[in-house]
Amino acid sequence: MILTIKYFGQIAEITQKDEESLTFSGNLISELLDLLHSKYSGLKLKEFQVAQNQELVTLDTELSGAEIALLPPFAGG
């Protein structure tokens, strides 16, 4: 399936882009993350949550969505 992956905050700095399209054949969110970790080694150091079709999901969730977002916490004020 073709996925649109959106990156926020420090994650976008590591990937050097806000968004990209990927063709991916895996089944789980965790498999997609394995791929992204191998593509962007800096991700290993960062904490983030994953949303699928605008909804927060866990790593064992099945990939069903067209849009995935990687969301890090911010603390600035």
Binding site: Q10, K46, E47, P73, G76
Partner: peptide, 25 residues
């Protein structure tokens, strides 16, 4: 429920270290 635990110390820089667009806050 969104972020269960704080990130490791120093993992996320703050405004004074990294800057912020003044109008954003």
């Amino acid at each position: 429920c969104l972020f269960p635990n704080p990130p490791e110390q120093g993992a996320v820089p703050n405004c004074s270290e990294i800057g912020v667009l003044g109008v954003l806050p």
